[in-house]
Design a protein around this nucleic acid. Sequence first.
DNA 1: CGGAAAATTGATGCTTTTCAACGTATGTGG
DNA 2: CCACATACGTTGAAAAGCATCAATTTTCCG
Lengths: 235, 235
Amino acid sequence: MLMIREDYNVHDRGCFVANPPVPTPASINDHLSRAPLRGIEAKDHVFSEGDPKSHVYQVVTGAVCLYKVLPDGRRQVIDFAYGGDIISLGLGRFETCNAQATVATRVRCLPLAALSGLARRDPMFALRMCEAMSDELSAVRDHLVCVVQRSATERLATFLLVLSRRNTRCGRDPLTIELPMTRTDIGDFLGLTIETVSRTFTKLKGLGLIEINQGTTIRIIDNEGLNAMADGAAG
Amino acid sequence: MLMIREDYNVHDRGCFVANPPVPTPASINDHLSRAPLRGIEAKDHVFSEGDPKSHVYQVVTGAVCLYKVLPDGRRQVIDFAYGGDIISLGLGRFETCNAQATVATRVRCLPLAALSGLARRDPMFALRMCEAMSDELSAVRDHLVCVVQRSATERLATFLLVLSRRNTRCGRDPLTIELPMTRTDIGDFLGLTIETVSRTFTKLKGLGLIEINQGTTIRIIDNEGLNAMADGAAG
DNA sequence: CGGAAAATTGATGCTTTTCAACGTATGTGG
DNA sequence: CCACATACGTTGAAAAGCATCAATTTTCCG
């Protein structure tokens, strides 16, 4: 059976209804709140690329890494989904990404049939889904710009600041950042090797911008400086 | 007044209705086919980031470059839109990208009010819009993977092959590729400098994979070899 | 034909990767 | 409870790939 550590990411609980990171239709959230929970152990997959699409998921606790792989095995993380985020939105017949829990995770599962039924009956529901996908599109574009144009230091600073702003939106401390994923996940997200990720964390620490506890908790010391660094102040 | 060179990209005409590059709802195409034409000179913008969104556009002839810029001026081309492609899809209030014609271009302009009216009245229309946005999302993700993970040679080979496949879909010769944009545009799309783009073209030519005419027309000589190159055969 | 913009080619330098070693945390079984 | 195994993270030195700077050539269009 699945062993779910209940103490992971407790801060995420209750966040998504009042303050969804991606503004999602109230009606989707209504239906999701009644959808059954599923526990997923760290490293296990919620779904894989090419799978017939069966559900739409909302992360409750934990984190999910959405990624693609090239034929030769190179991996690109498209995005991370945290508490409140919906993944696999859309009505295509197959999954187009892999979704792997980076830590022990719980998701709510809404059957695709329910979603498509709602969308067919209620134009406003379909519009809200469009809106959510539009936000997702916007996020991927921003990430594309960041990863292609920015230096390693700028990318990592940006990554931390995006998480910080998410904390603000969810009513958590914007200066304390939990990283519920490995350096490999972060590297594959930012297009860097784990060595460069590690070196860059060390560099930001050396500059007095952040502190690091056990590798997984980052404390922002100089928020202004980190913002300047993200925008290319002597990267 | 606008001077439109009618001889640009004549092959695109008539393609999009029968064979849309992005499968778009028949109803959108129906409405677009009756929407007024607008001519745009090379280098002029269709719209800019932050503009209030007024229309949805379908490229008829020519090509449009969708891009974003960082505060310090670094530019990332998100995508190119060619004959048949729809840009600015979605119902957000503001444009989130810049859209610049790379060559003399004609677009059909469907007022946003018409689009949102349709979407509100007809759930199937909204679903089709979702589908189109889903395809767009998928394309951006694929591009992200390509640009972040692949080498310069792999990126350029992939770029050519994507255009080749588009030609196939539109009933044109997949081995003859028109590049209706500058090396700067290609570089900003692939995350490379113009020098690297140029050198890489020369390299592919030297390997006997392609031929180049006047810089803007590429002929694929060894399709299999180009595919192998795109997937990392000794890049 | 002439001038400007775009593209190509060459030489050099920097950022990040690669390869390698070492350190640290976690969990298991003796 | 401690030794050990294993996964993860950090640090260092060398190398690769692409960017930058600079000069030249080609193309385009009046």
